[in-house]
């Protein structure tokens, strides 16, 4: 199709705009009587019909798209998301994994508590001192799950408790210490600390229970 004029002088482009966009004809009276215009309009209507049909197709996002997007975002939030604190002089961003490291070190500092890394492993074997590099490093991340929104933090932590220690009190102490350390070291507000006790272990100086 060229941008040519019809023999009657009407621009073909104007007719295409009329058909494609529904714009009003420049000269409706002329168009009603001009055979060139009517023929060209009929041709363009036929040409543009499949475009209209395609544009009218009911196209919807695949069913799993929302879930896929949110799964990626949750993954980002767990691993890469940062707390953001703003003041007039600028922003401070603290990565979620840093908050996780603070939480794990805080939990490990509570008597009778060892982080549970999953798979039955504990961060600090019985009878050994906690290694801050190990507890705060990436291998300790399985023990905590950190959610951050703005300057609010939610911590899920998995621990093993020494056999004989009062679990409720130990869990309360873990909650309290994590909340305090995060506030002191990062300035963030901890709104929840969910403690999951996944194992008990012999206290230092005692051997492991038979059968375990």
């Amino acid at each position: 199709m060229s941008g040519d004029r019809l023999p009657c002088g009407v621009l073909l482009d104007d007719l295409l705009a009329q058909v494609a966009e529904g714009t009003a004809p420049r000269d409706a009276a002329h168009q009603r009587t001009c055979p060139h215009c009517r023929a060209a309009l009929a041709e363009l209507e036929d040409l543009w019909a499949p475009v209209r049909e395609l544009a009218a197709e009911d196209v919807r996002a695949p069913a799993g798209l929302l879930q896929a997007v949110m799964a990626q975002i949750r993954d980002l939030s767990r691993n890469n998301w940062s707390a953001v604190m703003s003041d007039p002089t600028g922003q401070t961003r603290i990565a979620a994994r840093v908050v996780g490291a603070v939480a794990r070190l805080a939990a490990e500092s509570v008597p009778h508590v060892t982080l549970a890394l999953g798979g039955g492993r504990v961060a600090t074997p019985t009878g050994t001192a906690a290694d801050p590099a190990l507890v705060a490093g990436t291998s300790g991340e399985a023990a905590t799950d950190i959610g951050i929104a703005g300057n609010h933090v939610v911590v899920d932590v998995q621990i093993a408790v020494d056999l004989g220690a009062p679990i409720q009190q130990v869990a309360a102490a873990v909650r309290d210490r994590i909340t305090r350390h995060i506030a002191e070291q990062t300035g963030l507000v901890t709104t929840q600390v969910n403690v999951t006790v996944v194992d008990v272990r012999p206290p230092p100086g005692r051997t492991r229970m038979p059968g375990r």
Partner: peptide, 21 residues
């Protein structure tokens, strides 16, 4: 913007068809 995933999910739900189109 403050990190609320549910709010972002609402935005995704609102615009996913339009963007996919």
């Amino acid at each position: 913007r403050a990190g609320d995933e549910n709010a972002f999910a609402a935005l995704v739900r609102q615009y996913q068809d339009q963007l996919y189109r």
